[in-house]
Design a binder for these strands. Structure first.
Length: 591
RNA sequence: GGCCUGGUAGCUCAGUUGGUUAGAGCGCCGGCCUGUCACGCCGGAGGUCGAGAGUUCAAGUCUCUUCCAGGUCGCCA
């Protein structure tokens, strides 16, 4: 070994020991005589001291020329810093008086300073990610991710799960997200797809009798990126046989409890359950943020009596009328902000945003206020618990639009405008029993809300053909602070049920056979009842570290245009490579 | 694909109503300094104002096109 200790290790106990350290030069403080250097590795910083009387003129001369990010090895005696101790440093009680030095590698001046306090834009960080990853905060985040995967693996191992790898080169199925395709050289014109998730393989492992499976699996989806969406991401993927919904939820919950306990020493209690219908009604969302209250209030029965044609008309056309009461927010939200919120609401499909401010004197203000009869106003006041200083927002439209608008408005108000959330809040929720199907207006057919292998409530099976929109699934999502962190379901294990689901989705027998024949086959040979779940590992790590983007906890992430700024992937390839793969590009030539 | 924000020195940013030679802090280079710790002091170098076109006597600044980064809607079974 080239070193006896790391740069985060030495304490007063080590005084008078002779040690050898390796690391990067964080900075150099040259006092003309004595030179101080902070030496950095992933464990910390240690001050090393070059005193010409101790290290000699030759070593001192090299230290004089030493610059940031040089990699050096030094040997010397650990000394107390006495009154000069630095209380801000873990190793601040000591310093190492250098007696021997080897420069392992010099460094050019880095494009940005590798330290905590200097602000650097994300673009430049990603371009030189190998330098960015040296920064202590980024290293802490990367190490936390390792710790989490270690806890997760240990937990599932203790619970009897087997870690089994599934293929990366898979069969393409045009359902769901867009696939990343990989051309086959030996089968000209044919393609593999990278997995969107190991869904079918883990089900097949249950059918193969492996009972409890887990994998930390890379997944790929060729869709547009977001702060919490990368084209390649990682799932904590599990599947279990002979279980019902509660069994899977309990097992997954145990993992979360262990991660939060071991990492943050936070006790996550029993995670509450809420069904999909309730969530949509009260929070307008399938991932409610429970860090603050502000529930949506149903006013559909009140709207026709309100005297306001916009509210009454929406209900008359088969829509709903609902509202939010932002308690005490009248003074916090200016007229200008109300205009911005109206634009915000329009982004989610609203035609406008009716609001009412209740002044401190009890006066009702705002365009909607004038249109409401005195009688309706009293009824509304009681229904919504209105007090002076409150601010009401209304949604009157189709149920889908009202949920979308008020659900998003609620989060915008609570999180961004009123600051009702705070650091260190962990509001977990199991959201269960989502509908099996959702009608697609454009394609005029039903789509799966989860995926086509999700099992329906057995007692609702009979409605599959007559009323598919009202069949609920044995599904569950884990939501944390308004972010979907994981989701899963009990799967279909009976061939006839699977056939009926395909039929409801408008997938013909031939098509089902072509795409999923292997699964349908396996169902015929004694498939056990089974179910599972997948967590988004990136999101979990992001949330636990209270970061805003999963790019921060992925070592080499991609930009919004799915490019790796460091390696410059994707790139053009040789004609020869394309020819071998029987591919002709139709992209316009580059200038 | 739509909308919004940004792109000026190596980095982070300022730059007024279109008007002289485009500035600051940090970093970098040189010098001084034996107890600093984001050391200090003195001096210096460093610019395709993302790219292209246009308007104008004159463009970092106005207009159009385009590229890049971020946010968001659509999209993400």
């Amino acid at each position: 070994m080239k070193r006896t200790h790391t740069c985060g290790q030495l304490r007063a106990d080590h005084i008078d020991n002779t040690v050898t350290l390796c690391g990067w030069v964080q900075n150099q403080r040259d006092h003309g005589g004595v030179i101080f250097i902070d030496l950095r590795d992933r464990e910390g910083l240690t001050q090393i001291t070059f005193d010409p009387d101790i290290c000699g003129a030759d070593i001192h001369a090299i230290a004089d020329r030493m610059r940031s990010e040089w990699v050096i090895q030094i040997t010397g005696a650990v000394r107390s810093r006495g009154d000069n101790a630095n209380k801000k440093m873990a190793t601040g009680a000591i310093e190492v008086y250098v007696t021997s030095l080897e420069v392992l590698n010099k460094s050019e001046t880095p494009p940005f300073e590798v330290d905590e306090h200097s602000k650097v834009g994300e673009e430049i960080r990603l371009k030189h990610r190998f330098l960015d990853l040296r920064r202590p905060s980024v290293q802490r985040q990367t190490i936390t991710r390792h710790k989490i995967t270690k806890i997760v693996r240990d937990y599932f191992d203790d619970e009897g799960f087997l870690d089994i790898e599934t293929p990366i080169l898979c069969k393409s199925t045009p359902e769901g997200a867009r696939d990343y395709l990989v051309p086959s050289r030996v089968h000209p014109g044919e393609f593999y797809a990278l997995p969107q998730s190991p869904q079918l393989f883990k089900q097949l492992l249950m059918m193969a009798g492996y009972d409890r499976y887990m994998q930390i699996a890379k997944c790929f989806r060729d869709e547009d990126l977001r702060a919490d969406r990368q084209p390649e991401f990682t799932q904590i993927d599990i599947e279990m046989s002979f279980v019902d919904m509660d069994d899977v939820m309990q097992t997954a919950e145990g993992m979360v409890r262990k991660v939060w306990k071991d990492l943050l020493n936070v006790e996550v209690g029993e995670i509450p359950h809420m069904d999909y219908a309730t969530a949509m009604l009260l929070y307008g969302s399938d991932k409610p943020d429970l860090r603050f209250d502000m529930k949506i209030v149903e006013l559909t029965d009140w709207a026709p009596t309100s005297g306001f044609v916009v509210f009454a008309g929406a209900v008359e056309n088969g829509g709903v009328c609902r509202a939010l009461n932002a308690k005490g927010a009248a003074k916090d939200i200016s007229r200008r902000q109300l205009d911005a919120l109206t634009e915000f609401a329009k982004d989610f499909g609203a035609k406008g945003l009716a609001w009412i401010k209740i002044g401190d004197n009890g006066e009702w203000q705002g365009p909607a206020a004038k249109n409401i009869t005195e009688e309706a106003r009293i009824a509304l006041g009681e229904r919504m618990g209105v007090e002076n200083g409150d601010l009401l927002f209304f949604g009157a439209d189709t149920e889908k639009t009202v949920c979308n608008v008020l659900g998003n408005l609620r989060v915008e108000l609570g999180v961004n405008r009123l600051g009702l959330t705070k650091s260190g809040q962990w509001e977990f929720l199991w959201l269960h029993s989502a509908p099996m199907f959702e009608y697609d207006e454009d394609e005029r057919r039903y789509n799966s809300v989860h995926h086509p292998f999700t099992a329906p409530y057995p007692e609702e099976l009979e409605k599959m053909e007559t009323d598919p929109a009202n069949v609920r699934s044995l599904s569950y999502d884990m939501v944390l602070n308004g972010v979907e962190m994981g989701g899963g379901s009990i799967r279909i294990h009976q061939p006839d049920v699977q056939a009926r689901v395909f039929k409801a989705l408008g997938i013909s027998d031939e098509e089902a056979e072509e795409k999923f024949g292997f699964l349908l086959d396996a169902l015929k040979y004694g498939a056990p009842p089974h179910g599972g779940l997948a967590f988004g590992l990136d999101r979990l790590v992001m949330l636990i570290l209270e970061l805003d983007s999963i790019r921060d906890i992925i070592a080499f992430p991609k930009t919004q245009k799915a490019r790796d700024l460091m390696s410059d992937a994707p790139n053009l390839v040789d004609e020869k490579q394309l020819k071998e793969l029987s591919i002709i590009s139709s992209a316009p030539p580059r200038s």
